[in-house]
């Protein structure tokens, strides 16, 4: 697996870790820590979605001609995750811990199946079809961090 893909997978793991910390904070009814981890998890996830939707998916679609294939499914799942994040934010503000825990559980499982598809199928396809993937994502990573 190329370094660029490894970095994308690493971002998945970072988000998983933040969500696990958020879940733990919610279980302990620790609002301050929960809000901090929610903010970090949301930022990390939204940045990752943007990177994929604006750089990776268009490059894949250009390279393969598959406009209504896997990337369409992944985009749709990103929308669903944005909705779930929005729900979580409302529940966190309302301090409805039980409902938040249930919503986080759904978000977590949805993300996991999404990541499994990306890591097991889409990313290897990107690696196989996009010639300059490393340079493309390296440039983006650089611009994201500046």
């Amino acid at each position: 697996m190329s370094d660029a893909i490894t970095r994308l997978i690493y971002q998945h793991h970072e988000c998983d870790d933040l969500l696990a910390r958020l879940e733990a904070a919610v279980q302990q009814r620790d609002l301050c820590t929960g809000q901090r981890y929610f903010h970090e998890a949301e930022q990390a996830m939204l940045a990752h979605f943007e990177l994929e939707e604006t750089i990776l998916f268009p490059a894949f679609e250009l390279a393969t001609g598959l406009l209504h294939g896997p990337t369409e499914v992944m985009r749709d799942e990103h929308y669903a995750m944005r909705d779930l994040l929005e729900n979580c934010r409302s529940l966190l503000l309302a301090e409805d811990y039980a409902a938040l825990q249930a919503e986080l559980d759904t978000l977590f499982i949805f993300i996991q199946q999404h990541n499994a598809k990306e890591e097991g199928v889409l990313y290897p396809m990107c690696r196989a079809h996009i010639g300059d993937l490393g340079a493309l994502l390296a440039h983006t990573h650089a611009s994201c961090t500046t």
Binding site: G69, V73, K117, V121, P124, A128
Partner: peptide, 10 residues
Amino acid sequence: MNAPRNLAFH
């Protein structure tokens, strides 16, 4: 090629 051919969700 070391990649699956399609996601085949449909």
